[in-house]
Nucleic acid binder design. Structure first.
Lengths: 110, 110
DNA sequence: TCTTTGTATCGTAATATTGCAATAAATAAA
DNA sequence: TTTATTTATTGCAATATTACGATACAAAGA
């Protein structure tokens, strides 16, 4: 026990869960928002921007990279991180579909 | 160490992360989708629908209830669960805002 | 009342996540 | 080459999550 029973669920359900998990940490949200704000895809001055240790930020960046939300290009000793545009649109519509599959009628009755 | 440093982040970042975390499990997504499909807000025959133990389903339901995504009304010995319409719309726009804060231009360059 | 049914909670084991210091690796500059 | 700078990785401790059997609890029906 203790391990998610992925085989019980559909591909789609597992995928959506994985993406949600990538977003499910305030540090990763902060990283994403900072990458969005500084459009120029600024690198790891995220360490000073956010108050976490360098190793921790690096770890969060790797998780975001693994789901494909961000990408990085080497630039000398630094690395330029930025949102991955296509992937972003993909995730966006995945969530949109999920949230639009229920059309609330706005009476809160069961 | 090992505990999320919530104090480093904004209210909004923490809230969005909490919601994402609630969605970040395929079982909870499956529960939500089943509640959407059977509009009549069917109760815990989720146990037979999904292949997890009763205790496990109950635990997932509690997590969804805690974030407010679903609500339950007692009906004899059973409990009728359903999506919470207002909350759903709230979460929907939270995610929409998040995803729309970046407008991808579709060239994948940093 | 006693029994049945449906759900929640407790306790626990397995696994995953978070965070950081230390260290490695890679490139730029001296 | 040596040194500084930047990022990734390793190892580990603390905490959180997932899953389930056992059990408790509450309401319906016999």
């Amino acid at each position: 026990m203790g391990v998610t029973q992925s085989h019980l669920f559909t591909e789609d359900q597992n995928q959506l869960a994985l993406i949600a998990k990538a977003i499910a940490h305030p540090a990763r949200i902060a990283i994403i928002q900072h990458l969005i704000k500084t459009k120029s895809c600024i690198n790891g001055d995220l360490v000073s921007e956010i108050g976490l240790a360098q190793a921790t930020i690096s770890q969060h960046l790797r998780e975001l990279k693994e789901v494909g939300i961000i990408q990085g290009t080497i630039e000398g000793t630094k690395i330029n991180y930025c949102i991955h545009p296509e992937k972003w649109n993909e995730l966006k519509s995945l969530f949109q579909n999920f949230f639009e599959s229920y059309s609330a009628c706005c009476d809160s009755s069961c």
